[in-house]
Design a protein around this nucleic acid. Structure first.
Length: 339
DNA sequence: AAGGAGAGCAACCGCAGATTC
DNA sequence: AGAATCTGCGGTTGCTCTCCT
């Protein structure tokens, strides 16, 4: 896990201003539970403030950048970990078709998933499966030719929608971890079991982004009439369509466990299913919205079934024209996006 | 049982845009 | 205005684990 002895060939980074503070004695490689505790405790108490100065103040022998990454990709309490649900994978595929490798923008539309996690999931799972099915993961078109679906030939409306999605993502970009929270982060939770839950700064950002019209159309066109033999999937699709089509307020919170992995350092290790359920990371418990249940809904992941992907190819093959037609019907967008 | 191959993913790198002075 | 610094992002690496032979 992680990297410890990174090769010498890339040491010129010491000149990079990013790495200010990275000098003799600065630690790299996997984080230990103790380091996590220090970082977590410091940020809970003071907020992260300037990342550069944080390590010294928190008693860490890390560079600020490493601390920031650890926080944003792992320690942040509003992160959901674990398997991606069908709905999430579908959203990733659709957003990737529109946005390309703009992971942070995609992540902004997937509540509580980090861009790094989505990127990893895309590269290690979805991309490979699409390639295996003969679909070019970059253009989303069948490699053997056929209809250009998305990518360079994005039509005007899809480009417009992509720009809007990105703008929305910027607007709702994950709020900074303020020691004194902005007003919209005021907590209403009163029955949590740990102090960390009560912290108003721990309230996850709004998980719903209202303007996903292109996805709604896509899903309405392509998925609602999409017949898949798997009954669970069918149910899930209708559920997820509803959730996308209907703006929701912050879901109620309930307790779930969050796992962590410290490799050989004594806590959970990846993929040790049994152990993972009992060994916890820095947050022994955290609260996640109810809609996590959607991911638990699929016991047998239909996305992994050959049937799904065969039908997915058909879907892509015939889908883009339908999408265009429907997009044309729902709106008359301005000539150029205005935000 | 051993070891090689591949998968999964945390963490690093370097660049670029934003911000500060 | 521009240099210095900070932050965020996307690409990549390499360690650990699991599976297969």
């Amino acid at each position: 896990m992680g990297r410890s002895g990174r090769s010498e060939k890339k040491k010129k980074q010491n000149n990079n201003s990013n790495m200010v503070g990275l000098g003799v004695g600065v630690k790299k490689g996997p984080w230990t539970p103790e380091e996590d505790r220090k970082l977590l405790s410091y940020i809970q108490q003071y907020g992260h403030g300037s990342w550069r100065s944080l390590p010294a103040k928190a008693g860490l022998k890390r560079c600020g950048k490493s601390c920031r990454l650890r926080w944003t990709n792992y320690l942040r309490p509003d992160i959901k970990r674990g398997k991606f649900s069908l709905e999430e994978e579908r959203t990733i595929i659709q957003l990737h078709a529109l946005l390309g490798n703009r992971w942070s923008t995609i992540a902004a539309h997937l509540p509580r998933r980090t861009d790094n996690e989505i990127k990893n999931h895309w590269n290690s799972h979805i991309k490979k499966r699409m390639t295996k099915m003969g679909i070019d993961p970059m253009t989303h078109k069948p490699k053997s030719g056929g209809t250009q679906l998305l990518g360079s030939n994005l039509n005007h409306m899809a480009q417009w929608e992509a720009a809007r999605l990105e703008a929305e993502a910027r607007l709702v970009q994950k709020p900074k971890y303020y020691p004194n929270p902005p007003p919209y982060l005021t907590s209403t939770t009163t029955t949590t079991t740990q102090e960390v839950h009560k912290s108003p700064t721990m309230v996850p950002p709004p998980s719903y982004l209202p303007c996903l019209d292109v996805l709604k159309v896509w899903q309405g066109t392509l998925w609602s009439n999409y017949s898949i033999n798997n009954e669970s999937l069918q149910s899930l699709i209708s559920t997820s369509n509803a959730s996308l089509a209907t703006p929701t307020t912050m879901p109620e919170l309930n307790h779930v466990e969050i796992k962590s992995s410290y490799g050989d350092q004594g806590l959970a290790t990846k993929d040790n299913d049994q152990e993972d359920k009992t060994l916890m990371g820095p947050f022994e418990e955290f609260e996640y919205p109810d809609h996590d249940d959607a991911s638990n809904f699929i016991n047998e992941d239909p996305l992994r079934s050959p049937d799904f992907w065969e039908e997915f190819v058909d879907l892509l093959d015939g889908g883009w024209n339908s999408l265009n037609n429907n997009l044309a019907m729902i709106a008359s967008p301005p000539a150029s996006p205005v935000f």
